[in-house]
Amino acid sequence: MRIRVAHLYPDYLNIYADRGNIAVFERRAALRGHALEITGVAPGASLDPSSFDLIYVGGGQDREQALVAPDLAERGQLLRTAVDEGTALLAVCGGYQLLGRSYRGRDGSSMPGAGLFPLETVAGDRRLIGDVLLDVDLDGCTTTVAGFENHAGRTLLDPGAVPFGRVLAGHGNDGASRLEGCRVAAAIGTYLHGPLLPRNPVLADWLLARALEHAGGDGYLEPLADELERLAHVVSAGRARSRGGR
């Protein structure tokens, strides 16, 4: 099948190897006979999120993030509708923050977000940096997810909001709640990069399956051997256990 992917602001938000995540989607889809059709979306460009099966938003440095934030905030209503209707979405780090309700800087200034995720992010005084290991439940499929985090923001979920995972090692959303990321339907926001997907193939396939369903398929994906992926996951998970959260 053809999977339509919108990659938001690839020229601005690409700092933590976001193209690695895209490459994983592309190859894992191709190995099962599906083709990704990727559209890069620049600030100001027209976008109908509902016509896409999967949306990707990466991370950027503060300066680049500030340059695209107003554009993303304006697209909030359309993005919420698309996710309500089953479009899958992955947002990493900066993209995750910008899809919340707002980002409050240390100087007290507030930047509105797209309001897809029920959360607010407040700048902290110390960056939370290091390897992370999460315990994740994807509709009954439990798995660990390993990655790296580097963020000054403390993300606070609204009461009742669903986190992406529980922190086994590392800082997570705010360094205190032991919660990481946020999930709304098939939309996942997380601080984990590394990049996230190469060493977490279960998550990559879960997102691809949701995108396939949106495209009209049954969402079944033939299992892959994933030997290198597992090896990388084990090493990364070991790093988080030995030195995450410090």
Binding site: G20, A23, V24, R27, P198, R199, L228, E229, L231, A232, V235, S236
Partner: peptide, 23 residues
Amino acid sequence: GERAAELALRFTYAGFSPTQLEV
């Protein structure tokens, strides 16, 4: 190196043939 597996993923996901790669 200590993160050899990550490099292997970097190259194989970019299309480098696994048969020409050693970890």
